[in-house]
C-alpha cells in the first residue's frame, strides 16, 4: 500500500509518516500543494492524506484538481481546529473523509484503513444485500440478523450500529467514526455513550456464543471479526 501525505507542518507529517511506515505502509511526503498535486497526478497511490491549509496551492484545490482530471484516489482531508474547518466544503471538494487536528494516530490509521477498504470493494458494495462476518449474517433487505442460524432481535439503532461494524469488518473503528457513521453527529463523545451501545449490541450477538466477534481495541475503538485482512 502506498500513501502520499501532503502536509506543510513538518512535525505532523513526520509523525504520520513514521506511524504509517511502522504499520508497513509505503509513504511519500510533499510539503506544499504544488508538489503534492504533481506527485498525486503522476505517481500511483492507494490513498492521499491532504492538509487543508497549504502553501502555493491549498488542499481543497489540490483535491478538486485531481478529481477534475479523473483521479479517484481516496482522500483523507486534515484540518486544524480553528481554521474554517467546514466539513461540508472538504467533502464537496472531493474528499472522502475529514479529520480535525489534533488527532490521535490511531484515529487517522483507522480512517485510512476504512478508506482503502471502501475503494477496494468498489463496484461490489452497491449490490450487496447480505453481510456476513464469520457465522454472523445480516440481511439488509429483510432487515434481520442471525448468528449460526439463531435469529437475533435488534433495535433499529443497534441494527445500524452492527451494519456499520460489519461493513468495516476486520478493521478498527473508533468511537468518533461510529458516532459519525451511525448517529451522523461529528464531535468527540465525552462519556462512554458509544461503549454502552456497543456493550448492549455485544450482549445480543456474542453472549450466547462461544467465539466472541466484537472486540474492544484498547485506547482506539472496536473491531468486528478476526484478523481477516
Amino acid at each position: 500500500m502506498r500513501i502520499l501525505i501532503i502536509e506543510d507542518d513538518k512535525d505532523v507529517a513526520s509523525f504520520i509518516q513514521s506511524g504509517l511506515q511502522q504499520s508497513g505502509w509505503n509513504v511519500d511526503h510533499a510539503d506544499n500543494g504544488k508538489d503534492g498535486l504533481f506527485l498525486a497526478a503522476t505517481e500511483s497511490y492507494d490513498a492521499l492524506v491532504v492538509d487543508r491549509m497549504l502553501p502555493a496551492v491549498d488542499g481543497l484545490t489540490v483535491i478538486r484538481t485531481l478529481r477534475a482530471s479523473g483521479i479517484q484516489t481516496p482522500v483523507l482531508v486534515l484540518s486544524a481546529l480553528g481554521e474554517v474547518d467546514d466539513r461540508v466544503a472538504g467533502l464537496k471538494a472531493g474528499g472522502d473523509d475529514y479529520l480535525v487536528k489534533p488527532f490521535a494516530f490511531s484515529e487517522l490509521s483507522a480512517r485510512l484503513e476504512a478508506l482503502l477498504r471502501r475503494s477496494g470493494e468498489h463496484g461490489s458494495t452497491q449490490a450487496t444485500t447480505v453481510l456476513n462476518v464469520a457465522d454472523l449474517k445480516m440481511d439488509l433487505l429483510r432487515r434481520d440478523v442471525s448468528r449460526a442460524a439463531t435469529k437475533i432481535d435488534l433495535q433499529p439503532r443497534e441494527f445500524q450500529l452492527l451494519e456499520f461494524l460489519m461493513r468495516h469488518a476486520g478493521q478498527v473503528v473508533t468511537r468518533t467514526m461510529l458516532l459519525e457513521g451511525v448517529w451522523d453527529y461529528h464531535f468527540d463523545p465525552q462519556t462512554n455513550v458509544i461503549d454502552v451501545h456497543i456493550s448492549r449490541l455485544r450482549a445480543k450477538i456474542d453472549r450466547d456464543f462461544d467465539v466472541p466477534l466484537l472486540h474492544t481495541v484498547r485506547g482506539v475503538g472496536y473491531k468486528l471479526g478476526g484478523d481477516t485482512n
Partner: peptide
C-alpha cells in the same frame, strides 16, 4: 455563517436516544 433552520426536536430526540443507555447503565 453556517446557521440554518433546524428541527431542534429531532436533534434532542437523537441525543436522548444516544444517552438513554448510558444513563440506564
Amino acid at each position: 455563517s453556517a446557521f440554518a433552520e433546524l428541527d431542534l426536536s429531532g436533534i434532542v430526540s437523537d441525543i436522548c436516544e444516544l444517552y438513554h443507555a448510558a444513563a440506564e447503565d
